[in-house]
Nucleic acid binder design. Sequence first.
DNA 1: TAACATCTTTACGTGAACGTAAAGGTAAGC
DNA 2: GCTTACCTTTACGTTCACGTAAAGATGTTA
Lengths: 145, 145
Amino acid sequence: MNVVKQTEKQSASNKKEKTYSIGELSKVFDVTPRSIRFYEEQGLLSPTRSGQTRIYSKKDKVRLKLILRGKRLGFSLAETRTLFNLYDSHQNSKIQLQAMLEMTKEKRALLIQQLEDINVLMIELDEVESRCQDELEQINKGKTA
Amino acid sequence: MNVVKQTEKQSASNKKEKTYSIGELSKVFDVTPRSIRFYEEQGLLSPTRSGQTRIYSKKDKVRLKLILRGKRLGFSLAETRTLFNLYDSHQNSKIQLQAMLEMTKEKRALLIQQLEDINVLMIELDEVESRCQDELEQINKGKTA
DNA sequence: TAACATCTTTACGTGAACGTAAAGGTAAGC
DNA sequence: GCTTACCTTTACGTTCACGTAAAGATGTTA
């Protein structure tokens, strides 16, 4: 009868920090649980467990967001993992920092290229669109087709 | 001895229009001939032939450029093909035009999302980079590590 | 004429990112 | 106590975008 479920109970019984089930995250980000488990298998997430069940913290949630954004920008999971590892390693040796800088530089170049691509495509879409609309008007007015 | 090859000969013997071999295009765009043939197999290119050999026109070259830009932006070959088909169909029925408009709209939304993603990532890269450089300076000065 | 560079087709192989059963555990609610 | 919902693991299957021989045709160069 009561729509309120897990979420409420947790925040009532436990004041520590909000956590998420795999199903919740899957809905929030519109990905399948299978994908989320796969990301873990690939070393991109490491949720804690309650028995067998995975418990995701806010940090995990942020990570997932980063993974998905990376995907949208064409990063492979392996690349994202590498970035995570570099970022996580707080021993931060000189070599690691330099690797990080090189990676950011590389990625930045790619992003700039993408920006260019997007600009060009946007303009082309503009043209195509207005031409389409013109033709549609023609059809609707004069019965050209 | 002479570095000048096919290209020269063609433009000398034939004033029509410049054409390209698969090898030329492959160098120009830094893709393998295998990929170019694959795009043809998928219905994205249809070069003419001279005997068995594929001959690519300027139009084909433009198409290839579009394919690759699409790829960089995360378009599948199937999507690009659909766009090509819509664009090519000059019978331009009302339905096709509307399909085209919807597709451009969809794509535009994706591009806007990507722009957002890129902006966010750029800022993050800035932060990471300056932090890295700070730490590198620390290391180089005080021998912190 | 022989060697090479480049082209061709056919066809099996591959890596990434999941999809999809199958079979079972656990906790909530009726 | 039974159903329902959600979780788990294991493991094979699939799609996309090519890679990679293998084997042969064609054309230019030494």
